[in-house]
């Protein structure tokens, strides 16, 4: 992929651990730094802690120990900090999680009006731009249930973008989609990457990783097993665990 200029560190994860009630250690002593405009793909078998790690980054899960700093704001007990970080970090979920009682447009408008305190008119103008960008402007008045999975996920991306986030987190954004809809979502994500959005993506889409990611983290049992470019993972993965995993998904 073409070289792009990476910025300073925007996310710093320092020895983060997270266990669930019942003692399952989801994330163990995880550290990583992510630069502005970087696209990072996190891969790993199910239960390896990748989703938990991602959800720690915007405070949906609270880490037991370690520090997370996003755009110079520490993610700590301070509720204000958490809200600030959530304004800067957009998230896209595996199951879309659109608000079913609101139309596509209203879904995208909501946070702009309530959090960014924009007027209805301003919000709608920007929302339509975003819906246009994800190629779904004609469905602005439709309710989520009237859209296909791929369309819903694109609305969800537009909704996250509406906050003008500095970082976008994607939690297996294409795993719940029918195969023919995966590409329409990946295309939107690729465009975002090209525009220089900082992205952390949990996915098993190797094509996407290869095309747009700057580096890939392979996780297992809550820890980093191996990191490197997508090329590195394709051509000569070092660890046995990585080789085994890749042989299963490729």
């Amino acid at each position: 992929m073409s070289e792009k200029e990476l910025g300073e560190h925007i996310i710093t994860i320092d020895s983060v651990s997270k266990a669930f009630i019942g003692g399952v250690q989801a994330v163990k002593d995880f550290s990583a730094k992510i630069r502005r405009r970087e696209v990072v793909v996190i891969m790993g078998p199910s239960g390896s802690g990748k989703s938990t790690l991602l959800r720690c980054l915007n405070g949906l899960e609270e880490a037991d120990s370690g520090t997370i700093i996003v755009d110079n704001i520490p993610l700590d007990d301070n509720r204000k900090h958490r809200l600030e970080i959530r304004k800067e970090v957009g998230m896209v979920f595996q199951s879309f999680n659109l608000f079913p009682h609101l139309t596509s447009l209203e879904n995208v408008n909501l946070a702009q009006i309530r959090v960014r305190k924009k007027s209805q008119k301003e919000a709608t103008k920007f929302s339509m731009e975003l819906l246009n960008k994800v190629g779904i402007a004609e469905k602005a008045g439709n309710y989520p249930a009237q859209l296909s999975g791929g369309q819903q996920q694109r609305v969800a991306i537009a909704r996250a973008l509406a906050m003008m986030p500095k970082v976008m987190l994607f939690d297996e954004p294409t795993s719940a989609l029918d195969p023919e809809m995966i590409n329409e979502v990946l295309d939107v994500m690729k465009n975002l990457a090209t525009e220089g959005m900082t992205m952390v993506v949990v996915t098993h889409e190797m094509g996407f990783a290869r095309e747009v990611s700057d580096w890939v983290i392979f996780m297992d049992e809550g820890q980093i097993v191996e990191t490197g470019t997508a090329e590195h993972f394709f051509k000569n993965p070092q660890e046995d665990r990585t080789k085994l995993f890749l042989s299963q998904i490729l």
Binding site: G59, L83, R86, M91, N97, A111, V115, M163
Partner: peptide, 12 residues
């Protein structure tokens, strides 16, 4: 997921 989506948007 409704809560999580709402939280992730920074809504109070």
């Amino acid at each position: 997921g409704q809560w999580e989506a709402a939280h992730s948007l920074g809504l109070s």
